[in-house]
Design a protein around this nucleic acid. Structure first.
Lengths: 242, 242
DNA sequence: GCAAAAGTGTTGGAAATACACCCATGT
DNA sequence: ACATGGGTGTATTTCCAACACTTTTGC
């Protein structure tokens, strides 16, 4: 027979004791910020300032303060490290292995974002903050390679289900730029005609009536993404498929 | 001009101080365990043992210990609360708003699982642990309603992309049972013939050569899911689609 | 006029949907 | 015999993939 124990009611005071007990853990946020430039997918990295990992690359991270929301912490860290604000951030995964940080127990929550490199100049360049080619990363500090890989996969999946990619492009963009972006993220060539067809069929692109400038060939039309229209229509789920 | 500051190298000792500083936070895990019984989707709940939420329903949760992996904590909590083991658990999302716990700052990581109710009898029934109808939940403690909703959506999406659902069924199951399961999770009717066609086309179901017993009509054939074959073939991503 | 990329349509195959009939079993 | 759900096939449509030529611009 299963054992049944009567519950012992926990008072607020009792709980407070538990919460303030030794069962507390350092919690950090690491931001994986994707950009797009020269037809390559980029990611913001700094040099690790931790002695053990000297010279290696690191994501943008910091400890979460006891009195700040997790999301707020992510925004604060991004702002502190880069000067960037008005960016959307999305939580991806939490990494909580005991051995992941050399100085003790630190659980970290990974946040992702996609921003347009041209529109958001970096205002702080401490620790060699720079846009790093997302496809040639090595020598990362901590378990940041694992975190990055996880976020990259998240991006690849997410960009096919939601109109995230447009955050990486200028407000007005050509279809060629859009396709280059998708090819860079998914890391494969796409058929130009079918690509156009697909995006026009979605009916979220607005012709702004302008052309590309300073291209050494026939200029393409510029479009912008109609986020409002998208929000209204949203998506229906695809069927069962695995 | 952007400011550039030279990095100050952090030694291990310095880091340890930071990690052990006041910047520590109580971290908990909450488990959302789905089951399937009588053609209804169920979820494991207990009565909250917190005075403020007395009488309300609660997910299975506990604080993470400083020396245990996050995943391990999830398995421990599940085992402690229900006696269940040999269950796969998947991390879904981390909830970190400052106001979510009345006794102070507690960040919680939600884990999900799907188990077969018949195969896994509950061995511990403390705090009125029971299978609750997933579609008629109200009065949940803390922000557990939010967490549950998030996990339910995760399930609905996940079950269409991965063969999770089979964990909710007996080893051998009829196609009708499988369809009932999908209809319960997705909360919509599906066409029986097309449903069969889809699953047979995937070619992961194995006819075990037995029939249903004790049904008041023609018995259906029983199948099992070939996880090995699935692992080998896996899925190719669906195209861009939103 | 030439290079380079923009822009455009059609066609065949695969997959999803909608739909109707016969079959096996328990009562 | 009949009620209940099991089991099957086909026609239609929709979506996706493959593919080639003409147009516009900069040089």
């Amino acid at each position: 027979m299963p054992q049944i124990k009567q519950p012992s009611i926990k008072t607020l005071k009792g709980l407070q004791t538990e919460v303030q007990s030794i069962n507390r853990i350092a919690l950090s946020v690491d931001c994986v910020i994707f950009g797009f430039d020269e037809n390559k997918l980029k990611v913001l990295l700094i040099r690790s300032d931790v002695k053990k990992f000297i010279g290696m690359w690191s994501l943008l991270g910091d400890l979460v303060k006891p009195e700040e929301d997790l999301d707020s912490a992510a925004y604060r860290i991004l702002k502190q490290r880069t000067g960037l604000k008005d960016i959307f951030l999305e939580q991806v995964h939490t990494f909580g292995e005991t051995g992941r940080h050399p100085a003790g127990r630190v659980v970290t929550v990974a946040y992702c974002s996609l921003i347009n490199i041209q529109n958001h100049r970096l205002r702080i360049l401490d620790n060699e903050l720079h846009w790093h080619d997302a496809n040639s990363i090595c020598d990362m500090a901590f378990d940041h390679q694992v975190i990055f890989n996880s976020c990259y996969k998240w991006l690849q999946k997410r960009v096919q289900e939601h109109p995230l990619g447009f955050n990486l492009l200028p407000n007005k963009f050509s279809l060629r730029e859009l396709q280059n972006l998708y090819e860079a993220i998914l890391n494969k060539k796409l058929d130009r005609r079918n690509f156009r067809k697909k995006f026009f069929a979605m009916d979220f692109l607005v012709d702004v009536g302008e052309d590309e400038q300073n291209v050494p060939h026939r200029p393409g039309k510029l479009y912008k993404f109609n986020f409002e229209k998208y929000e209204k229509k949203k998506k229906k789920w695809p069927g069962i498929d695995f």
